[in-house]
Amino acid sequence: MAFNILVCAKQVPDTNVIKINPKTGTLIRDGVPSILNNDDANALEEALRIKDEFEDVVVTVVSMGPPQAQDMLTECLAMGADEAILISDRAVGGSDTQATSNALVATIKKAEKEMGKSFDLVFAGRQAIDGDTAQVGPQVAEKLDLPQVTYVEECSLNAEMNEVTVKRNLEDGYEVIKVKTPCMLTAIKELNTPRYMTIEGIFSAKDKPTHVWSAADVEVDLSTVGLEASPTNVFRSFTPAPKGKGEMIEATSEKELVEKLLVGLKSKHVI
């Protein structure tokens, strides 16, 4: 029986390139590339490293998004994943993290049933750069009833392939955690350096299976997905106020300059 790894990935706009139109206050999307979310690339890389190290490992990538997200999945296949699944349906559009995790969990369960396997390890990126919520990974784990370790910066699978030892990043250090498979791990960029696609990988990617499923295909309860089912809604959205010229500190000595600066920084809660 193969060891099955699932990687949850998302196609995102490259937020480092996004600019705001100062007149209209809206995002300028023209020329903004869609990319495989950074942390998800680390999640995939870790799965591929396990595949390199152990025999008989199958890596499946799952994503939710518009049909164009297939491009990102093809990239994952070209990096070395074995197969890809995309849940794409207007019915799941506008989902918040709770509804997104419902759709993904239905897709994962469908994949297990359809392909006659169960996933031994589920990886996800810690968070996506467009939403920065870091909530979908843990919420998928909750609904699959899997233990989770988030902020994983180091990971090793034992020889029996039934337990992982991970280093979990904390603000003031780290903790070492052991957890039996199956489990969910969310990756941060310290975990590894994602590989590039190879020429061979790009050619073989088109021969690997990519399943594009609708909400009906994955048999998800439609009352649990999409905008209507999402507990949270966007009330308003806006651009931060443009930064104007600040305050020139007036003082008669360097010491006074420094003191006034520190008082200012303190009053604005930046220190």
Partner: peptide, 15 residues
């Protein structure tokens, strides 16, 4: 903040 701080969103949970 969302979109890398390029946009702010106010979120509610009414129901």
């Amino acid at each position: 903040p969302a979109f890398g701080g390029n946009l702010m969103a106010t979120i509610i949970c009414p129901r």
